[in-house]
Design a protein around this nucleic acid. Structure first.
Lengths: 352, 352
DNA sequence: GTGAAAGCGCTAACAG
DNA sequence: CTGTTAGCGCTTTCAC
């Protein structure tokens, strides 16, 4: 109502009229050169007279010209963007992976676009499908998609998958079998004789690896029982309290840190002391594990390295490197001992 | 070396040759129709003979055709994607905001592209600049950019900013003044007479709001002192222990939950009990605040609603709605009382 | 209901 | 070093 058509603040400052932005042609006209020259001035400055280039850039700046990366990508395929797809961005598990990926991308002047699958493979596919044309490469971190869906993606853009081993696609995994052994040895060393594995989603490739690793590592003499599965979250861990208690194990290895933390909370709420009554170990070493009480003992994955190596590898693929057809790249893990593990209730132990 | 031009495994299965994907023309040829018909079959199915459309879609599927959203975006401007820019995606603070944004986007069949600024305004601008052509709208959550930089973005695409009030750009903030009052009243009610504010980054718009709110709320009689600034992280909070102790306040209100948690940890490490010796309150109510010991009392922001409303508003802008020029949209906050606050040391109090 | 042709903003030959 | 000309894959008038 208060606005007249020519109100002064309508022309420049506002967010109102998203005007068509200046194109390369507008700049060309203003500078009195051909469009291709303007293009060159921006994409390969070496190939154009220094002064001309300067003038062009000045004029472009005055006009408020910004190169349209999308339009550039159509003929060239270059967008300087990579997609990092996570099964759930809000999962702290991804924090360091993202950092590593960003660092590696920055080294080659690429930007990372984060795509969230929200733990739903349908959403995941849809979001990826839309973003694919905008990126030069893709890293799939703990994807929920089927192998065939992954291959469809991989056929469209250089792709590497994290935490999953899929034939014919560049894969990076952590050494879960060794991690399982570390956990078992630690517990056995403490004097535990029977430990429970609190399983995560059955569709999780990693879950299978951890369970198998645990059984094999326990073959030595430990008794190992399986609980769950539960959702891979704090809530999931909490809901397993009864089952764990019923099992009577003196220690539990959880699918991941979230589950371990949820379990600890549930246990404590039920009046069970950790680690005095029950020891618990997680997987991954997300940052929260160092924040909770007691600090969570966990099998640490080189999260940052995972992210870094993954994008370094897609970058290589983009630059024409061959893809390995055989084994996945396996990263080492280590045990971080904090305060959620202790000798079983029977055996006395001093405490500071 | 081992590859002959017609080696069988080169054609179909591998990730090797990223072949040029089938275009609309390939489909058109195979279906014996014009390209424009294929286009219509996908973008406005109503406008084409049902059978023809079916046939086209079948053939397209067989060929493995996928519409190239980028190419479509060039003439139409439609990408079905929105950018959500966060100052640091790995910050748990954004978890619920992201969820809310995704939910709102899904309602209109849009996808969210997450862009991480890594707490660096240069990186932020570069990443946004690249992504802008791929998205129809942008929400800036706690951006680190200058007002003018924000306006430059807002001129290119419908934009709404979160947690910042900037003239001429659609803004959404939480009621920090009221939050501050809630914190102060709670502490005063407990019997505290002097409280410290542990400040976050000075460049943070929100920090200013919270500090001012605290001072005004405290005018009633509480003594309020300022500490910091510290980085808005757990580590930042931890490094303030000495300063806080020196100040001698019986309660501290921290810039945000991370800082509060870091402070609590540092305090505990120094042998100071929370809340028995010192009470602490945070802001935001991130999920970790319910996980730490003791649970953190905090001024909760409607995080999910923030995200939801923000994208609903960009969607409106995209659909041509006018932009408000006056006040930012303000969302209510509330106090979540957990166990990090208690009466000051002097006054006895029972504990279960 | 369908085809032909032009064009989105940019880059990439190819001449000069 | 610079201009001219196609053309990336899709949509969109405009005819038929």
């Amino acid at each position: 109502m208060a606005e007249t058509p020519d109100s002064p603040d309508d022309g420049e400052g506002g967010t109102r009229g998203r005007i068509r932005p200046p194109t390369i042609y507008d700049v060309a006209r203003a500078a009195g050169v051909a469009a291709s020259t303007v293009s060159r001035a921006f994409s390969r400055p070496g190939r154009v007279n220094a002064e001309t280039a300067d003038r062009i850039r000045t004029i472009a700046a005055e006009l408020g010209y910004r190169t349209n990366y999308l339009a550039r990508a159509l003929p060239t395929g270059r967008t300087s963007m990579l997609a990092l797809v996570t099964s759930d961005v809000t999962n702290p598990f991804y924090a360091e992976i993202i950092r590593g990926a960003e660092a590696a991308a920055a080294e080659e002047d690429y930007s990372i676009l984060l795509i969230d699958a929200q733990e739903d493979d349908r959403i995941e596919r849809r979001n990826i499908e839309r973003a694919v044309p905008s990126v030069e490469g893709i890293v799939l971190a703990s994807t929920r998609m089927s192998d065939s869906a992954i291959r469809v993606i991989a056929k469209q853009r250089p792709t590497v998958v994290l935490n999953r081993d899929i034939a014919d696609v560049s894969s990076i995994v952590t050494d879960n079998p060794h991690g399982a052994r570390l956990a078992v040895d630690h517990l056995a060393g403490l004097g535990h004789r029977t430990v429970a594995y609190l399983a995560g989603p059955e569709s999780s490739w990693v879950d299978g690896m951890r369970w198998r690793g645990l059984r094999e590592a326990a073959a030595t003499g430990l008794r190992i029982q399986r609980s769950g599965p539960v959702p891979p979250t704090v809530a999931g861990g909490a809901q397993a309290v009864e089952e764990i208690l019923r099992g009577g194990a003196g220690a539990v290895v959880a699918y991941n840190d979230q589950v371990a933390i949820g379990l600890m909370r549930g246990l404590q709420a039920a009046g069970v002391r950790v680690p005095d009554d029950i020891s618990v170990i997680g997987f991954d070493d997300i940052f929260v594990s160092d924040l909770v009480q007691p600090g969570l003992t966990t099998v640490a994955a080189p999260l940052r390295a995972e992210g870094h190596i993954a994008v370094r590898d897609v970058l290589r693929l983009i630059n024409g490197a061959a893809v390995r057809g055989d084994q996945p790249k396996t990263l080492p893990v280590k045990l971080i001992t904090r305060h959620s593990t202790a000798p079983p209730r029977g055996s006395r132990r001093k405490k500071g």
